[in-house]
Write a protein that binds this DNA or RNA. Structure first.
Lengths: 349, 349
DNA sequence: TCCCGCGCCGGGAGCGCTCTCTCCCGCCCG
DNA sequence: CGGGCGGGAGAGAGCGCTCCCGGCGCGGGA
């Protein structure tokens, strides 16, 4: 299996350098209390032998793995979050790499996978977990909690019931939505509609909340339900047009939805943005730039979210991560971190 | 770190079941030579204690890790391959999961990362590697080879000179391109142009080769160079239109390119498909379905590629010539497996 | 001068598991 | 009825590493 002829051990390095295993070990993990001359000799031996520490042996005694699990449910990574997830992954990867941690990817699909993930996490193979859980009824969070592993969530978990032992990173869906709607209002639009995402996802719910923040008393007929797909956007747009033919702006819960809406608007002969202004969400590039006209939308710092998740995990809210011990610590590690969004102005609004 | 109070060991299970460690070990790894009654008792003890084997300890002695590294360079996962890479990852994940292997994700960016990856692979932390290497001058393949780890490549490596026993999985870029061009020809088009991808990537080169297979003696002016982006597609399309105003079909190296071409064609008042038929490649859904008109394109089984890569690796790439149901590849392409593509007909051609 | 203390280094005991080797017991065959 | 044989179970030796502890040499204070 491991192909190469037996790799050199600490022992071998020690012998070559004429010191003990302990000394080599000290040098290898950040020399400290070793005379410079000796340390140098050890380093040379390491170099010459091409020594690489055996992580398994190390973990066995330290009980640390320098590895973090990233858990995501299949559907997320598929439907709407594709480039999204990849970008978060990139952010996570960078941060982990910077701290010499490995990234173990766990993609789940269906119930049995959940059990598997639970077992894996509980098995103590990793030092922590980054979990993407976008649905209200997602079983993952519970599993992870039972596993007793330090965890940071990506996206606000639906069951964030105020317990502050839940650490998550999200972008400011609500604030971003407010910005989008205010932008439309600032354009002088008065009949602003909203196509939601699937409301069992917190991001969709939060965007709707943001819309309502700004258009408090708006005609409820101006809100139609979508599902983060372009097909859903088309359907919702038709519905809206039927109910409120006089609408002059649409805030779509994501870019795909906006693309669908755009298509229907064109088909109905409404000019964008002249007759109807449209704003999306996500700034999913291949889509937002490709639409006609290019989409004004709300951009999130997706990679930054990933980075932050990893950083929070590594900084460790741990210590108190053991389930029951009620740490009366000062809450300077916020339970939820929300990243700002920015409105990207293109031609559609 | 690993939070929970010390997890139960083999020893603990053994004690509870009233047997020796060895026996528990035998039961845990596929009972074999243990009396049913005893085995059952052990299994109960495992259950009751919630025992999970310590992978580190196991690896230490077996020298296996049941883990596979997936190595990909940043730019790939970014520019063109975003949803693409995610899908392959999904396929890989499924296959690995089915064989109880973990997926360690290594994203690289820049030279120092390469060194890091090399060290990691050489460090014997994983049983094998799946490497995505699309560029001719990619340093990754060399690194991996030096690391002496069983490897399967995703995409034909540029330096596959026919001598190397390189195992890779690719989709039939050349054949798919041929299908696309034949389809255009079958539509009665006679002035068929091609917008290439960046030709330092084998996929782009192979698609160009496929185009040439069908249009052997074609006017060289009918080939323009793109870069797999929509901007590149626009530029190339303008160029083509300037050189050959009478062209009546375009085969674009990927969907993004096609989308760019489509935009230019519309801007120039050419009707698609009436005046100019357009075919893309990839069937990148958010793009291909979103264009106007929806894009006829060549679909690859991306997830299947991922799956196959993992399967080949787990099968043990060294004895790939074994008497298995190996795919029908010519022996002169030593260990490359090429997956078929299918033409998806939509409105653009 | 002696002794205490401190800074470096080596010895050794495991971490939790697998695997070989040995032992034991029951059964079959001579 | 005894010896050989084979299958099932246990004992023990590590895998490569970290970390505790004890020893040793040197310097400074009494």
């Amino acid at each position: 299996m491991s192909a190469t002829a037996s790799r050199p051990t600490l022992e071998a390095v020690a012998e070559r350098a004429g010191v003990s295993r302990a000394t080599v070990s000290r040098v290898v993990n950040g020399a400290h209390g070793v005379r410079a001359a000796l340390a140098e000799r050890v380093r040379r031996a390491v170099e010459e032998l091409g020594y690489v520490p055996n992580q398994a042996a190390r973990s066995l005694v330290t009980r640390r793995h320098d590895a973090v699990a990233v858990v995501a449910a299949e559907p997320e990574t598929r439907v709407f979050a594709d480039p999204y997830f990849a970008q978060q992954l990139r952010g996570i990867s960078k941060e982990l790499t910077a701290h010499d941690n490995q990234l173990v990817l766990l993609l789940t699909e269906g119930r049995e996978d959940h059990a598997r993930v639970g077992r894996y996490l509980a098995g103590g193979h990793v030092d922590g977990a980054l979990v993407f859980s976008l649905h209200l009824d997602d079983p993952l969070p519970g599993l992870v909690r039972d596993a007793g592993v330090p965890t940071v969530f990506g996206g606000r978990p639906g069951w964030d019931d105020g317990r502050d032992d839940v650490v998550y990173v999200d972008s400011d869906n609500r604030g971003g939505a407010r910005d989008a709607v205010r932008h439309l209002a600032g354009l002088g639009r008065t009949r602003i509609a909203h196509i939601t995402g699937p409301l069992d996802q917190t991001s969709a719910a939060d965007r709707l909340a943001g819309f309502r923040d700004v258009r408090a008393g708006a005609d409820p007929g101006l809100v139609a339900r979508g599902d983060f797909t372009s097909g859903g956007g088309e359907r919702a747009m038709r519905e809206l047009l039927a109910r409120c033919p006089d609408l002059d702006a649409v805030f779509a819960a994501n870019d795909l939805t906006a693309a669908g809406a755009l298509r229907v608007l064109r088909e109905r002969g409404r000019r964008v943005p002249d007759d109807v202004a449209v704003v999306g969400f996500d700034d999913m590039l291949p889509v937002a730039e490709q639409t006609d006209p290019p989409l004004t939308t709300v951009r999130q710092d997706i990679e930054g979210m990933g980075r932050l998740m990893a950083r929070l995990l590594l900084r460790g809210p741990d210590r108190g991560a053991g389930a029951e011990e009620s740490t009366a610590t000062a809450p300077d590690t916020p339970s939820g971190v929300v990243l700002p969004t920015t409105l990207i102005r293109r031609a559609s609004a």
